[in-house]
Amino acid sequence: MDAPRLDLDRTTTALLTGLFDPRNAAAWEAFDRRYRPILVGFARNCGARDNDAAEIAQETIVRFVEEYRAGKYDRSRGRLGAWLVTIARYRLLDIRRRAGTARITSGERAMVDLDDERSLGATYEAQRRQSLLREALEELRTNTRTDPRTVKAFEMLVYHGLSTQVVAEQMAMSTHDVYLAKSRVAAKLREIVLRLESEYEEAPGEWEGSDARPSAGLAP
């Protein structure tokens, strides 16, 4: 149960560097898989309709990659997420302007003030965190050597809200083992989350400049 010690220098920029090469499909795909769902969710929460949200995500990714290749993305001037939000915000404002003063559709009203940097940041961060956890869970199920019984006990406990006693009975384990399974999964998930975040230099909570604040539930 050693805490993961990641070599940040080696892994951080590897994926982003891949974006320089138009033929590096893997890098493209990985970047897209990571950020598209975040941007779609972000745009929807900012009041865009589903179609518009997809379009905004698409345009934002394209524009980011262009700027990245042109050397405009400067780490020291802000996190990757902040760049994406800045780009996406312009697209959102475009759409709002195009819609003019006409009512867009009911129920699709802006939830976030596009002029409020802090709430834009928070909206993006919430989406990013959700995507990250989904990715980590997916990896836990498909890609780790964690004992399937451990994963199953964890799922029964956390997803289905079953009591420890019930899980222990159904899995023929002791309650102690059920708790142990939970701890193991938590540790594994944290490890995955840390690695995924470091791949894109997106350590949690570093939204605003260098004021690092650890997000809830994650061990430093």
Binding site: R141, K152, F154, E155, V158, Q170, L189, A216, G217
Partner: peptide, 21 residues
């Protein structure tokens, strides 16, 4: 307690529940 909070957060993020017993 931190584990529990973290795992709850994961469960909420999950798109759909995996296979059930």
């Amino acid at each position: 307690a931190a584990d529990n909070a973290f795992l709850q957060e994961c469960a909420h993020a999950a798109p759909k529940a995996p296979q059930r017993p």
